[in-house]
Amino acid sequence: MSVFIQQFLNGMVLGSIYGLVALGLTLVYGILHVPNFAHGAFYMVGAYVSFTLMNAMGVNYWVAMAGAAAVVAVLSVLSERLVFNPLRHAPPIHDKIAAIGILLFLEAGVQAIYGADFHRMPTPYNGAVSFGGIFMQEQRLLIIIGALSLMALLHLFLKRTMVGSTIIAMAQDREGAFLVGIDSNKVAMMTFAIAGALAAVAATLYAPINLVSPAMGHLVIMKAFVIIIVGGMGSIPGAIIGGMIIGFAEALGAFYISTDYKDIIAFALLVVILSIRPEGLFTKGTR
C-alpha cells in the first residue's frame, strides 16, 4: 500500500508540472486558436534563465524563479506581437509552421550559448520529509504545493477580476468581446505573458529533480498537448484534470509496466482515447 501511495505522490508531482504547462497552452489556444509548438521552448528557456541567475549571479531560488517568469513572459509577448499577430488571417497551417520556427530558433540559440550538455539546477530544498513511512523530497512537496496554489491563484484571477474575465470573455466569443469594448491586442498580450510565466515557473520547480538541457521541453510540451486534447482545448479545468490523469498514468505505468516505455504511455493513452472518442473526453461535439 505504501508503495502505491508513493507512486500516487509521484504521479501528483508529474501531474502538477504538466498541468502548469498545459494551462498556458490552453489559455493561448482559447484566445488565438494557435497550437503554440514553441511553448515547450519557453519552458526550456525558463529553466536556463533560472539556472543562469542562480549559478552565475548567485541569486536566491525564488528571485531566480521570478526573474525567469519575467524574462519568458516578455519573450512570449514578443512572439505574439512579432509572429502570431501578423499571421492572424493567414491559413491555419502557417501559424503552426511559424510556431515551429520559433521553437527551432530558441532551441538552437540556447544550444549555441550553453552547449548540448545536461546541467543540474541547485535548490535550497534538499531535505526529505516523512510521514507514516512515506518519504518525500522537499522539492517534490514544493512542486505540488506551488503548482496547486498557482492554479488556485489563476482561477481567482480569471473568475474574480475584471482583467481576468476579459480573457474568458474573449475565449468564449470573440465578436461579443469586441462589442463590449475589449481590446483584443491587450488580451492576447496578457494571455501570452501569463502562459510564458507559468511555463518558466513550472520549469524552475521541476528542473532541480530533473536536468536542464536544450531538449528538456520536447516531452513536456508533447504531454501538455496530449493533456489539452484529452481535456478539451481551451478548457482550464480540463488542463488541470488532464494533467493529473497523465501524471498518474505515467507514474503508475512506469512502476507497474516498464520504466523504459513510460514516456510512451501518455501518447498511447492519447491514441486509445482518440480512437474511441475523437472528440476528447470532456468536450461535446465533433472536431
Partner: peptide, 28 residues
C-alpha cells in the same frame, strides 16, 4: 484511419505524438 478523424490542429498534434511513439519504439 485514426488520425484523420481529427481536423487541423488536432491532426497536427496527433501526428506529432505518432512521430514520438515511432521514435521511442525505435530507441527502446
Amino acid at each position: 484511419i485514426v488520425s484523420l478523424r481529427l481536423k487541423e490542429h488536432y491532426f497536427a498534434i496527433f501526428t506529432l505524438a505518432v512521430g514520438f511513439i515511432i521514435l521511442l519504439i525505435i530507441e527502446k
